[in-house]
């Protein structure tokens, strides 16, 4: 009986070539990045008193400012609701066309998905800046920005849901000769309605967060007041606005979490 051969580590395993290589790459990238961005830890600490000064001024919120920002806060939520709804309305047909179990034409699906991927790459503030140039300063630009932003996000979430449905009811209806629209209405919709609503609420949460800063570029809502207080160095007002944003975001998150639990 021969002794079994002891497995040998290869040369590259013994010297951890892969691990060392990845680490070296990461370190090189990080060093390059810090050179590029001019990071200077010392400067942050030497200017730290300015930063603490700012924090001290922000820790004394000007509560008298609260009544003034109630109306723009409402506007922010209204923008988010309308934007998300418009985006969803446009997203549904695209989601159906992008789902691989409903549309068997690979070309059509590929083109639709490419469009959706492109839409999703655009940052929301950038869209806001462009729409402010077209529609002027105000909430219209904000609503349209949020609509496009939620269109990209919801259509992806929706087509992924559609792809997970049970195909049984669809085949049953197809075999008795139902039309495409009838199939979608009676076999697809009932299976996905709850998840659609849940994702809609989730997107609404994200849009409420996004719409609080859109106004910074003039697209309506509380962001307009945020920009004003920051440019006037009124940090006690800035503090009130940020606290109000926190409250609004948490209330909306709470309501939407509760609704989602009721639904699912």
């Amino acid at each position: 009986m021969t002794t079994p051969e002891i497995p040998q580590r290869s040369w590259s395993q013994r010297w951890h070539v892969k691990g060392v290589g990845w680490t070296a790459l990461l370190v090189a990238l990080l060093v390059g990045s810090s050179k590029m961005t001019g990071v200077d830890v010392g400067m942050f600490f030497s200017n730290f008193d300015q930063f603490t000064n700012l924090l001290v001024r922000m820790s004394q919120p000007a509560w008298s400012y609260v009544p003034i920002i109630i109306q723009p806060l409402y506007e922010t939520i209204q923008m988010a609701i309308l934007g998300t709804t418009i985006g969803t309305v446009f997203a549904v047909p695209f989601a159906v066309l992008a789902a691989s179990n409903l549309v068997h034409n690979q070309w059509l699906r590929g083109i639709i998905r490419l469009i959706l991927d492109l839409v999703r790459t655009l940052p929301d503030l950038l869209l806001a800046a462009i729409f402010v140039a077209i529609f002027g300063i105000g909430s219209t630009a904000g609503v349209i920005t949020l609509a496009i932003f939620s269109f990209g996000m919801i259509s992806k979430l929706f087509y992924e849901v559609i792809e997970t449905i049970d195909m049984g009811p669809l085949e049953a209806m197809e075999s008795v000769g139902a039309s495409k629209v009838t199939i979608i209405w009676y076999a697809v919709l009932p299976q996905i309605m709850n998840q659609f609503v849940s994702y809609f609420l989730y997107t609404l949460e994200i849009n409420v967060r996004a719409s609080t800063v859109l106004g910074y570029l003039g697209a309506g809502g509380i962001g307009v007041f945020l920009q004003r207080s920051l440019s006037e160095f009124d940090y006690n007002k800035t503090a009130v606005i940020i606290l109000a944003m926190l409250v609004v975001v948490m209330v909306i998150d709470g309501v939407s979490n509760h609704l989602r639990r009721v639904l699912l």
Binding site: G38, M43, F44, F51, V213, V249, M250
Partner: peptide, 29 residues
């Protein structure tokens, strides 16, 4: 963690610009 998540990134950037001046260092922070 929720408080940090909700604090708008743009406002953070503006605060860091006060501390380290405009430029990409404030963006990194």
């Amino acid at each position: 963690l929720t408080l940090i998540r909700t604090f708008p990134e743009i406002v953070l950037a503006i605060m860091f610009i006060k501390a380290v001046g405009p430029g990409s260092y404030a963006g990194v922070l």
